[in-house]
Design a protein around this nucleic acid. Structure first.
Lengths: 346, 346
DNA sequence: CTGAAAGCGCTTACAG
DNA sequence: CTGAAAGCGCTTACAG
């Protein structure tokens, strides 16, 4: 039987052919290809020559089938256009590649449906592990994780339903510190543009905002808390609403970078100036936060550490080095003070 | 023989088991799993029930091995932190997923060595096709492309050495138009921060800059042309040099967005203001180009079309629908005028 | 529409 | 250190 392979131009070369040409057994070729130290130098050289002569390339599918692993990790992030996730992806890719893993990257674009479809696709294609910044708390994800034969690490966002390792920062604390900074500056009307309440980071950052107010004995008007979705456009609308209040806030704290950008746009479109008319701060630093005017005051996450820790956890799980108990690694954010915040007008 | 699979917790279920439990032949299970319309409805339902009951999942490696294809496309971009590439990746992923392909994404980070290593990794993992925005003109890439059994589509950047399809924009023309805009505004000393000359976009954008000057009969001092590498940091240095000239430029045109950001930083650090002291324009729009002050005037590329066209070409190549001749699809850029350019001081 | 069987290209235990 | 052989889990041509 011969399958048609219309899309392949050159002939496919197998180990059998290499073995025949080199006059050795197939197992010897396999040992050479896999760098097993049990082949004599001269034989190895002979086999290598044949391999490069006839352009042999190991068939990944056959290897995967035999070994029961793909050396490939799925990575799903909630928004690939967000510099925070972009940086995270870069770090994770580097770290995993160093350990011999390839990465299949997906962008759920914040949609649970897309995310679930992507998980299915990844599982169908064959992955050994899955690193996810979940689109939101998702019963489906929990179910898939429980039934699939893959190791899972959550990153940036955790979900108590999902039985998996997680690498996150202490969002409540970081949010509290940033809010306290604004309060200490004299702001008493601080608008908060929240991420979704279905995402751990959204909940915790809002909790930190409230906690800081409580500690400073400042009451939070419910008008000042607006739900966003971690995206620019919704935040624009939310900021516009805040600015239209009879007693508008003197500062806006956005639960991520894209929502701060949406807020800045709303401020500009309202003919206001930041920071002289209104201050802005946000979660998630980005490479050009300090280039334009005003320079954004942000809560920077330790992106490199987050990514490396997630990759490390994944690799050690896969190698069976980790204990069976699920781990939650919690890192710290850091307030980067720039020029977008100033005391409120007297 | 039984292989140890220490990292798998649940038992692996095969078609054989499904067939046994459902009381049918393996081929029937295969037909059900692959949605072949040759199975009676009642049988299909029975098999489906068993599949979900015992949690059967098709083994991708076995399928790939048998079919000689992976339904997976490799995608390598030169800088994943650049919003242009980020958007491009999102578009390509969407388009390919619609056609049933998964994407393995790599970031060469502008390094040829990294890029070549990634290509090897991808080929080793098994891909049907490869879409690349090459790190630079690369004889290695040409060689790999020629010898590998995969379809290749270049995107954003072409390379005459590489025998593959390419989807690009007319960079020279777009660069000419942007430069002409600055010239028409009265600028006679326009600094150009170029991308690498080893990349087609770098060469063509520089050529457009020169061509516009020639058409306007304005001589270009060689001092005004600085080599960058499409990154922020080198551009910062280059812009600093431009600003330190005895007769500094009244406008800077940067060959991409990140280099414009580097230039803006240099301008700010020099105590100058854009656009009152110096104008700035650049290639590649990005989502928040209009949010901060000044709002950047940019050459926007048709990112969606670029990505979709690349995906379309790849899919039709893989399905054998395309003729054997390599295609170069050339789209047009569009100047987006904002507030970062003003006439030079009298 | 169903079933028995070959074979995709590897890896690996085993015998020498 | 080498070689013959089993088998990973699927897909598919073929006979019924």
């Amino acid at each position: 039987m011969k399958m048609s392979r219309p899309s392949r131009s050159a002939a496919k070369v197998t180990m059998v052919e290499v073995a025949a040409r080199a006059g050795v057994a197939i197992s010897t070729v396999s040992a050479v290809v896999n760098d097993k130290p049990i082949v004599s130098e001269s034989l190895r050289a002979r086999v290598q020559r044949v391999i490069s002569d006839i352009g042999y390339k190991r068939n990944a599918a056959a290897r995967n089938l035999k070994r029961g692993a793909t050396q490939t990790i799925g990575l799903i992030v909630a928004d690939i256009t967000n510099p925070f996730f972009t940086d995270l992806v870069a770090v994770i890719e580097d770290a995993l590649r160093e350990s011999g893993y390839a990465v299949m990257l997906c962008n759920s674009n914040g949609s649970v449906e897309t995310q679930d479809a992507q998980i299915k696709l990844l599982l169908d294609r064959g992955i050994d592990g899955l690193i996810v910044a979940p689109a939101c708390d998702d019963a489906n994800l929990a179910r898939i994780v429980a039934s699939a034969h893959v190791k899972v690490v959550l990153i940036d966002r955790h979900s108590s339903d999902v039985r998996a390792d997680a690498v996150v920062i202490d969002n409540e604390r970081a949010s509290r510190e940033a809010t306290a900074y604004l309060l200490a500056m004299g702001h008493r009307r601080i608008g908060f543009i929240s991420g979704s309440e279905n995402i751990s980071t959204g909940r915790e950052r809002l909790a930190g905002y409230r906690a800081a107010h409580k500690a400073a004995r400042v009451r939070v008007s419910r008008d000042y808390v607006r739900m966003g979705d971690f995206r620019q456009q919704e935040a624009y609308r939310a900021a516009m609403e805040l600015l239209a209040l009879p007693n508008p806030p003197t500062a806006i704290f956005a639960a991520n970078n894209l929502m701060a950008i949406g807020s800045m746009k709303a401020i500009a479109d309202s003919g206001l100036e930041c920071p002289s008319d209104i201050s802005v701060a946000c979660f998630d630093d980005f490479p050009w936060a300090d280039v334009f005017y005003p320079q954004l005051t942000t809560v920077a996450q330790p992106v490199t550490k987050l990514g490396q820790e997630a990759a490390r956890l994944m690799v050690s799980r896969l190698s069976g080095r980790e204990s069976s108990k699920f781990k939650r690694v919690v890192l710290r954010g850091r307030l980067v003070v720039r020029t977008s915040c100033a005391p409120p007008r007297p």
